[in-house]
Design a protein around this nucleic acid. Structure first.
Lengths: 211, 211
DNA sequence: GTCTATAATGAGATAGAC
DNA sequence: GTCTATCTCATTATAGAC
C-alpha cells in the first residue's frame, strides 16, 4: 500500500472509527473493525496510534471540534429566518429545532454515537474533563445560536443566555433520546412545539430593556 | 456451596450485574465480573442463564419493573405537598424534581447505568421493543405523577397528560445528562426552576374547565 | 446442583521481514 | 512505512468429575 503520512492515517482512522461507532456502537469499534473500515492493516493502526484508547480520545476531540464547526455553519442560516421583532423568536426556535430533528431522523446513528461517546468518556477517568468539554461545546453552540437569534430578531433574554442555552441543550438531549427510543415523530413534534413556546417565553422585545 | 434454587440464583446475578454496571459500566459487566460480585462460580452462572445476553435482558426487564415500583412509591408522597389550588403545582413540581435530583446526586452511577442500558438495548436488535418499553415506563411514571398532582392540587392540564409527561421525561433526561457531564449543581437548580415554571404553565385551575 | 478445568473465540499489541 | 504472522490475555461457553 502507498506510503501515507502518519497524520493522514490518523485522520482516516478517526473517520473510520466514527463510521463504525455510528453503525455498530462504541463496543463494536474494535481495532480490527476500524482498520477493516479504513481498509488498512492492523500494524498500520499501531503505527499511527499507540493504543485504541488514544484513538478513541482523538475521536472524541474531533467530535467536539466538529460540533463547533457545525455550530458556526448553522449560524449562517439564522438571519434568513428573521421575522417581526419579538414574536418571531418562537417560530425561529421552532424552525431551528425542526432542522435539527430532520437531521436526527436522517442520521439517527450519528446522534446515538454522540450519546455513547459521552457515556464512554464518563466511564474513562483518563479522559479527564472531556465529558465537560463535549457537553460544554453543545452549550456554547446553543449560546451562539441564541445570541444570534436575539440580535436578528431584536429581542432580549430574560435570563442569562448561558442559562437559556442549558435549557435548550437539555431539551434537545431529551428530545433526541425520546425519539431514539420510540421513534414517535408526532410526539417529537409536540415536544418541539412545547420547547419553542417555553424558550420564547424567556424572550422579551429588546426595546423593553431600553426604556 | 449451598444448593440454591435457580430462580434465586438468577435474582442474585441480576442484582450483582446491576451493581457492576453501576460501578464500572455496561462494558465492564462481564460474566466473570458479575459472578465475582455475586460470589458465585462461572459454572453456576451458566446453570442459571444460558448466555450473558439473556442475563442482560433480564437486567433490563428488572429495571423497567423496578421503575414502576418506584413510581408507585413516589405517589405516596404527592398528597403531602398539597397547597393552594392552582398555584401549588409549580412548587409541587419543583419539589418532586428536587427529590429526584437529590437521588441523582446521591447515586449518580445508578442513573448513568440506566442510560447505558438504554443505549445497549438500542444496539441490540434481539431485545426488540425493550427500549420503547423502558422509555415508556418512564413516561407512564410521569403520567401517574402528573395525574395524581392534578387531582391533589385541583388543577387540569391544558395539554393531553401524555404530552406533558413526555415533556417532563425529556427535561429530566436532559437535566440528568447535563449534570452527569458537568456536575454543576447550581446550573441544575436553575434548570429545575425553569422546568417547574414551564410545566406549571401547562396547568390551569380545574374549576376553569367546570365553568 | 456445583465445582474445576478447558475449549473456542476474539481482543489489543508486537516482532521482524521487506 | 508497511506488511504477515504471532503473542498474550480476557472473554463466553462447555465438559465432565463429584
Amino acid at each position: 500500500m502507498a506510503r501515507v503520512a502518519a497524520t493522514e492515517r490518523r485522520a482516516s482512522l478517526v473517520q473510520a472509527a466514527l463510521t463504525v461507532i455510528a453503525r455498530d456502537g462504541v463496543h463494536a469499534a474494535t481495532t480490527r473493525a476500524i482498520v477493516a473500515e479504513a481498509d488498512m492493516s492492523l500494524a498500520s493502526f499501531h503505527y499511527a496510534f499507540t493504543s485504541r484508547d488514544e484513538l478513541i480520545r482523538e475521536v472524541i476531540s474531533f467530535v467536539v471540534d466538529d460540533q463547533h464547526r457545525v455550530s458556526l455553519a448553522t449560524l449562517e442560516n439564522v438571519p434568513a429566518d428573521a421575522e417581526t421583532p419579538g414574536s418571531g423568536i418562537r417560530s425561529a426556535v421552532r424552525a431551528a429545532l425542526q432542522a435539527y430533528f430532520d437531521l436526527l431522523v436522517e442520521f439517527p446513528e450519528r446522534e446515538q454515537a454522540m450519546f455513547e461517546l459521552i457515556h464512554y468518556s464518563l466511564r474513562t477517568p483518563e479522559l479527564g474533563k472531556l465529558p465537560q468539554v463535549q457537553h460544554g461545546s453543545y452549550r456554547h453552540m446553543a449560546v451562539e445560536l441564541l445570541e444570534a437569534g436575539a440580535a436578528t430578531l431584536d429581542i432580549s433574554w430574560t435570563r442569562p443566555v448561558e442559562e437559556v442555552a442549558r435549557v435548550l441543550v437539555a431539551l434537545t438531549d431529551g428530545l433526541t433520546l425520546a425519539w431514539l427510543a420510540d421513534r414517535d415523530d408526532a410526539a417529537a413534534g409536540h415536544l418541539m412545539d412545547f420547547i419553542a413556546d417555553s424558550i420564547a417565553a424567556l424572550a422579551v422585545p429588546a426595546k423593553v430593556l431600553h426604556s
